[in-house]
Simulated assay, not measured.
Amino acid sequence: MIPAPSGASRRVGAARARLVAVLLTLACGALGVIASTQTWFTVDLTGAAAHSLSVPGSTAVPILAPLSLAVLALGAALSIAGTVLRFVFGAIEVVIAAALIVTTWPVAFTHPVGAVARVVTTATGITGDASVAKLIAQNVATPWPYVTAVLWLVLVATGVFVLATARRWRSTGRRYRTDATGRQPSAGPLDAVESWDDLSRGEDPTDSGR
């Protein structure tokens, strides 16, 4: 028979689940912010206006930068959230990821004129998608739209992971718990998130107690 996991093993597993969820959320948010500053399309114009224009992610998908910053904030909040807020933040994370998929995937895989129209209009003064389309000889995507599209799938999976595991996360990062017999250490080492929890409460996570 395979022995059931001990209490210490479950606690370590819960701590790792929270750490994975927080780090993945922060990574997705950070990469989203970076992607918003990178060139997504190179547009070649025709006629008298013939030259090349670079279109950044923040222009192709205007909500990319603000929602990526919101994901970063969610990652930070998840590191200290209680059980109820974990479910709330996990649900918000899934909703944000879905919104980013809906807006990013069409841009990445169909290259609509609207994604580059603002840059072309700024350079030429021509407005309207139909008029702008006539000026475009070629619209070439860089890898960034595709990388970002996949990134939001990871974010959806992370949000679902948060919802699936949030109840098992430790509700406190304290290394020691007080009971009728006095101050006793909990099993297992502190992880980075738990240390941050202690510091946010004004406690010293390195204090071994009395």
Rank of each mutant, 00 (worst) to 15 (best):
T165W: 07
D191P: 07
T110Y: 08
V193E: 00
A99N: 14
P143M: 07
V94E: 04
T83C: 14
G173H: 10
F89M: 02
L69W: 11
S186N: 13
G188S: 07
G114I: 05
D197Y: 12
L78F: 03
A164H: 06
G173K: 02
A77M: 03
L163Y: 05
V113M: 02
L163N: 05
R168K: 04
A117H: 05
V116H: 11
A157G: 00
A115R: 04
F87H: 05
T158F: 02
V132L: 08
V162K: 01
G114K: 08
V94N: 05
G114P: 12
A98M: 07
E93I: 04
K134W: 04
I92A: 11
W196C: 13
A180V: 14
V193P: 04
F89W: 02
S131N: 15
T124D: 07
V84W: 12
A192H: 12
A76Y: 07
D191G: 03
L69K: 12
T127C: 13
L163R: 06
T83S: 13
S195H: 10
A115F: 09
A117P: 09
A99K: 10
V147D: 13
T127L: 12
V84E: 13
L74K: 05
P145F: 03
E203T: 14
A192Y: 11
F109I: 10
T110E: 00
T127F: 10
Q184H: 14
V119E: 12
G125C: 05
G202L: 05
A141R: 01
A99F: 13
W105C: 14
A81I: 06
P185M: 07
K134S: 12
T148G: 10
R174P: 08
G82R: 00
W169N: 09
V107Q: 09
A157I: 01
V119A: 12
L100M: 15
L155Q: 03
A117C: 12
L135K: 04
A76P: 06
I96A: 00
V132R: 10
D179K: 01
L190H: 10
P143L: 01
A81N: 06
V147S: 13
V156S: 04
A76D: 04
F109E: 13
S79V: 02
T104P: 10
A166R: 07
V132W: 00
G188W: 08
Y176L: 09
A149H: 01
V193N: 08
V154S: 07
V71W: 09
P112T: 06
E93F: 00
A187C: 11
E93K: 02
V156E: 08
F87Q: 00
R183G: 05
A76S: 04
D179G: 10
G75I: 01
S171G: 15
R175L: 05
P185E: 10
V154H: 03
T142V: 02
T83P: 13
D191L: 05
T103F: 13
H111L: 11
T122P: 12
W144S: 12
A98S: 12
T158P: 03
A192I: 08
A81F: 03
